[in-house]
Nucleic acid binder design. Structure first.
Lengths: 256, 256
DNA sequence: TATCATTTGTTCGTATGTATC
DNA sequence: CGATACATACGAACAAATGAT
């Protein structure tokens, strides 16, 4: 089969590709300065806007950083500085998350209605009433920020007077409350990522176009009834999540 | 304290912010068409390049999609269509991953040396020799792609003749080999995200500027000796990962 | 200290190509 | 075919940060 006929990439994409290759091959080592825009114009015979668009692509891929008045420099990609454990420890009847973040400001309690997505994961009616508790967290050592939201459907709060009175209870204490109420708890978590929105840029101190990592942890009863949802979002440039993978016995049918 | 003096945002950032707010507030509903570039020029009294730069910001945040000859439309954000379980099931002495992806092409076996990052997670010498096995996977139902790499240090392969002869053994079968060799296996996994690089754009069919999700699973012995590393990367636009969180007894000292 | 050359950032104008309807 | 819309590319000017003179 002859190769399909396709439109050639625009010049700024071609230039970005060449420079990306040069960076990947080590021709421009991490920390090295890229040729100036003027030099790139002359070397490749294109205009300044074209060069700038190409370099903008590299910036977006986080391959280079540009500094006003100085130049563009190859970034040294490294493992995220902070690893947030998503594991849970049991001591007696108490379950405590392993992550160790401190609150930056007092938790904000909001009475809301479930979004379509939250309703689906909590297996509730869409628009069902719920508490949402927002926390802004930080890692003292690195200054990294994380936004945490706890979603508590009203029907769950109704079953726990203490929870209804203090929805801003610490998650570890909520686990304790639910356990004391006779629930055997299980946890499931999904991880997704997206580009930072304007509000996340400010709260998470993320740069434009930077990826944001999101985990959604559902606490359920042993009978698979979802109770509460916790959502943690943080800048993927600085943080990664860690899980333990523990094999479960296979009924070979389960589709949880 | 009087407000700090800061430089005003450039016009294209201001315009992007206004449009983002309008989208967030529902003024432009999902699926709705944005005013054309000409209309935005007139309405806000800026030039075409400025309008284009603002809309490019919105595109980068995945708030709008632009279609040649038609216009720019507000995207309807939705949950990733595919949830990849990262859980493992045990049947007898056999451990099988729950994810169900099919190979697109034959696995590629490469003899390489560990990168700094891989060496750190595998607790080996940097540049230590290893097999790397690359697979291109797909979900038949959705056509979503994923790239999988298995990294097997030579010292591990040396202890398992079958593994040395067939590094491209399926991960589930590698687990079986290692178990038969007397190892009690444990798994740990980290999740990170970054913007798609040019090569990922093509292999994962990701768009420019789109986030890529990466999980790195380390299989270790019960004595915490890392044996192999599996890395799975996929476009975060289409996929999320799922884990079970299973509490472990707390020696209150562990720092694994 | 002040000035200047270099470099990136912002904004405009303009022309042409091409997909859609 | 023409009108509209976005995509690509060029040129030009000025602003602002930086570092050296």
């Amino acid at each position: 089969m002859p190769g399909e006929i396709t439109r050639p990439d625009p010049m700024y994409v071609q230039l970005a590709g060449r420079l990306a290759d040069a960076i990947a091959s080590g021709e421009y080592a991490p920390g090295a300065q890229l040729p100036s825009e003027t030099q790139l114009m002359e070397r490749y015979g294109v205009s300044r806007p074209t060069v700038r668009q190409a370099v903008a692509e590299l910036r977006n891929m986080r391959l280079v950083e540009s500094h006003h008045g100085k130049g563009s420099f190859v970034t040294q990609r490294s493992t995220p500085g902070l690893t947030l454990p998503r594991t849970v420890r049991r001591t007696g009847k108490r379950y405590t998350p392993d992550s160790d973040l401190t609150e930056i400001e007092a938790p904000a309690i909001i009475r809301t209605h479930l979004t379509a997505e939250d309703a689906a994961t909590l297996e509730r009616e869409e628009e069902a009433a719920a508490f949402a508790v927002d926390r802004l967290l930080t890692d003292p050592a690195t200054g990294t920020r994380a936004a945490h939201r706890t979603v508590i459907p009203f029907d769950v709060a109704d079953e726990n007077t203490l929870l209804a009175l203090n929805p801003d209870t610490d998650p570890a204490d909520i686990y304790a409350l639910l356990t004391e109420a006779g629930h055997a708890l299980t946890w499931s978590e999904t991880v997704s990522a997206h580009i930072a929105l304007p509000d996340e840029r400010s709260s998470l101190q993320a740069e434009a176009g930077a990826p944001v990592l999101v985990t959604r942890r559902v606490t359920s009863t042993a009978e698979s009834r979802p109770l509460i949802l916790e959502e943690t979002r943080t800048s993927a440039a600085h943080v990664q999540f860690r899980f333990r993978v523990i094999p479960e016995k296979a009924p070979a049918k389960g589709r949880n």
